[in-house]
């Protein structure tokens, strides 16, 4: 764990030396989910509009490393390549995933509509199993809300957890807001994950989380 953190810090320092407008940030999250019950996460991330690397840790429960590269061909188009590795210690298993998505970030006088459509492939493994579990599926992310210069409030929904790793096939719905001032930004993100197969009127939630993060431009 210490080695992983050291590597990440080294990567951050290297990136900051290469990029004049690097944003670095950290966050804290509370989760209540069907496997771990209470989980407390801290995360560190660095990047800008084109790339981001991240480390997330829920201490003795799980850890996740991630990297994203975004190609911006024009003002609204976006193409993302995202890779992540997740391991859960008490479960002795995890997931490696790779996704490619294409979409747009559209803003019409404050009304924001962002979407990504793509594919995600992942390999789940368990140290208690001889078999790997390969999954490949389409993926979609929709964000809709309000965004002006330094403020955004977006409601989002995704068929997979777009930038996470546990690779499930159930919807995640969230609300996030970002407030920026000078070279700093505060983000609040709340999401719920739906358990599946609710044919009746009851929506069953298998995961609830709230994340606060702070970013500063170096």
């Amino acid at each position: 764990m210490k080695r992983v953190v050291s590597y990440c810090v080294a990567i951050f320092i290297l990136l900051s030396s290469l990029n004049a407008s690097l944003m670095v940030g950290g966050g804290f999250a509370l989760r209540y989910d069907s496997v771990f019950k209470d989980a407390y996460e801290i995360d560190l991330h660095a990047g800008d509009e084109s790339y981001e690397v991240g480390l997330l840790s829920a201490f003795d429960k799980y850890i996740r490393l991630s990297g994203r590269y975004t190609f911006i061909p024009n003002r609204t188009m976006r193409m993302d390549l995202f890779s992540s590795y997740y391991h859960a210690f008490p479960l002795a298993g995890g997931t490696g995933s790779l996704s490619f998505n294409i979409g747009q970030d559209i803003n019409l006088s404050g009304f924001a509509f962002n979407y990504r459509i793509g594919v995600i492939a992942g390999l789940n493994y368990s140290l208690y199993s001889d078999e790997l579990h390969f999954s490949f599926s389409p993926n979609i992310l929709l964000e809709i809300g309000y965004a002006i210069q330094d403020f955004s409030l977006l409601l989002y929904a995704t068929g997979e957890r777009f930038y996470e790793t546990t690779f499930q096939s159930v919807p995640i719905i969230g609300l996030k807001t970002e407030i920026g001032f000078s070279d700093q930004r505060i983000c609040l993100d709340c999401y719920v994950k739906l358990a599946d197969y609710m044919e009746g009127p009851t929506i069953l939630l298998s995961d609830i989380a709230m994340r606060v993060s702070y970013e500063v431009e170096l």
Partner: peptide, 23 residues
């Protein structure tokens, strides 16, 4: 296992749940 992705949608949704049960 395998490439039949119709199975993916009809198994336990969360990989953590699956791994917890396998353990």
């Amino acid at each position: 296992k395998g490439l039949d992705q119709s199975l993916f949608e009809f198994t336990i949704a969360d990989a953590d749940e699956r791994n917890a049960m396998l353990k």
